[in-house]
């Protein structure tokens, strides 16, 4: 496995590559349900599907480097009664096969689970061609597709289990960038129902994926400065948890959103579209403003202020 290894500070929380939890859960589900198949584009290794292939050789459909065909084939497999999990690096899945996702999966309303592997800027130095930062915006523009972005291994497992039984179009990020566990034990996973990880009344930090643990760190630091920050893990980008967002708009003095995605059309846009119409509130939208320069995933997150420092700064600008 070639996950990016982050330097771990002594005493820092253990971090995880969510692709491991994804692959383990998929294999566990496949043992119990023979309708589950994996579809990929020469991405057996990068999607951690080697064990799946060895255990279920007939149920690993590797179409080669052909993403349009991959998504069309997956829709056909759904028509044939299977539950396809399409495993493909995020940029090539949502970019190359966008029309297939629109027509073959979403408009057809077939139960296909599109798993954008190594999303965001986790391919760091490989550059913008290999970054998947437009996926939220592109998927949000489609009707009838659920967009999930699990924040840690537990949510990844829960999301995969839910997706297998959902029988509907789903897009899910499967993170490569190592993250700490942020989901409290016993937290139920409900798509479209955000998890409030920390209560607070001054500012709301609405984060997704990699940014969730960083928002928790920011809240801790804001607390030391006398600012009470609510932290919301928005693991579902669509459908949006409107109640949690409107409560944040009503009960705090401002909202900061944070995502490893372009600032146009993603989580921040979704939150803004809601609050501007239903309960206007001051906002800051943290994300990626432009094609990234060269650098590791970790470097790029810091470069764009997608870290605790950036979140603290934005919160203080809003309510400090």
């Amino acid at each position: 496995m070639s996950a990016i290894d982050l330097p771990v500070r002594p005493g820092a929380a253990e971090t995880f590559d969510c692709r491991v939890a994804f692959a383990e859960t998929l294999a566990e589900l496949a043992r119990a349900d023979k309708r589950i198949v994996a579809v990929c584009n020469d991405s057996v290794g990068s999607s951690n599907l080697n064990a799946f292939r060895d255990e279920f050789p007939d149920r690993l459909i590797n179409v080669g480097i052909a993403e349009q065909n991959m998504v069309g084939v997956a829709a056909g497999l759904a028509n044939a009664g299977f539950i396809p999990f399409v495993c493909c690096a995020g940029p090539f899945l949502t970019g190359r096969a966008l029309e297939q996702i629109k027509a073959d999966v979403a408009y057809n309303n077939y139960g296909v689970v599109l798993c954008g592997q190594s999303p965001g800027m986790s391919y760091g130095e490989l550059g913008p061609t290999h970054h998947s930062i437009e996926d939220f915006a592109w998927m949000r523009a489609l009707s009838d597709i659920t967009i999930l972005n699990p924040a840690d291994p537990q949510q990844t497992r829960d999301a995969v289990r839910w997706a297998a039984g959902a029988d509907r179009p789903i897009y899910m990020r499967v993170g490569r960038f190592k993250v700490p566990a942020v989901t409290p034990a016993g937290t139920a996973f409900e798509p479209g129902r955000a998890v409030v990880l920390r209560e607070g009344g001054d500012v709301a930090l609405i984060a997704t994926g990699v940014l969730v643990s960083r928002a928790l760190e920011a809240a801790e630091r804001l607390s030391a400065q006398g600012i009470s920050a609510r932290v919301i893990n928005m693991h579902t980008i669509a459908p949006l948890d409107e109640a949690a967002i409107l409560a944040a708009a009503r009960e705090t003095r401002g909202i900061v959103t944070a995502e490893e995605a372009v600032v146009s059309g993603g989580l921040g846009s979704a939150v803004a579209e809601l609050v501007v119409q239903r309960h206007p509130a001051p906002m800051r939208i943290l994300g990626v403003p432009h094609f990234a320069p060269t650098g590791s995933a970790s470097f790029l997150l810091d470069h764009f202020g997608l870290n605790a420092d950036g979140l603290v700064r934005a919160a203080i600008e809003l309510v400090g």
Binding site: V37, R59, V73, G76, L77, N79, A80, F82
Partner: peptide, 14 residues
């Protein structure tokens, strides 16, 4: 055609 290939591959697997 890609969709039909999926239908046919599914029929084969099943």
């Amino acid at each position: 055609l890609p969709f039909a290939v999926g239908c046919a591959a599914g029929g084969r697997i099943a």
